[in-house]
């Protein structure tokens, strides 16, 4: 009898320990899932607020054949700010970013806010006025604290005009 009571006590304690472990795992999993959902929704909000548009004249995109410099004009047509340091541009299969690309905010200031335009100059070799070129640009959206949130991209087909 005493042996039965002891073994039942052991089973009881074991059951308690196992159920506690399960409960802790449940709490942890639900908490992580909720955090993931929160991050995903923040990223989605960033994507919806971030938009960039090429405003170049597609038939007259400025190109200096001597230096190989091609000039893009990108307008922030979203409602949030965009990053000038995360810009990636591409033309005719050449993609560049970072220090290879010169970015200037035409309105002055330090923040590429909604409605502002940047001039992006980067080298691309071998473009001619008779070529149809596919251009592409992307960058990150920024939240009010300046952290990356979402992304924006645009593409167009163009011809260059030698300057």
């Amino acid at each position: 009898m005493a042996g039965t009571a002891v073994s039942e006590l052991i089973f009881f304690i074991t059951a308690l320990m196992v159920s506690s472990a399960v409960a802790l795992v449940l709490v942890d999993v639900i908490d992580r899932y909720a955090e993931d959902i929160e991050e995903s929704s923040s990223a989605l909000k960033g994507d919806m607020q971030s938009r960039v548009t090429f405003i170049n004249d597609p038939l007259n995109v400025p190109y200096d054949p001597a230096s190989g410099n091609l000039t893009y004009y990108l307008k922030n047509t979203g409602t949030g700010a965009l990053s000038m340091t995360d810009i990636v541009v591409s033309a005719n299969g050449t993609a560049l970013s970072g220090t290879s690309v010169s970015v200037k905010l035409l309105s002055g200031g330090a923040r590429w806010s909604s409605g502002s335009t940047v001039e992006v100059v980067f080298p691309v070799k071998g473009l001619t006025t008779s070529m149809d070129v596919i251009g592409w640009a992307s960058t990150s959206g920024l939240n009010s604290a300046g952290a990356s949130r979402g992304s924006a991209e645009d593409s167009f087909v163009f011809r260059v005009r030698e300057v």
């Binding site: 308690l16 399960v22 409960a23 449940l26 942890d28 999993v29 908490d31």
Partner: peptide, 13 residues
């Protein structure tokens, strides 16, 4: 008790 603990964990989560 095990069921109660697990349910408590679910509700807490």
């Amino acid at each position: 008790v095990s069921a109660a603990v697990i349910t408590l964990g679910l509700i807490s989560g």
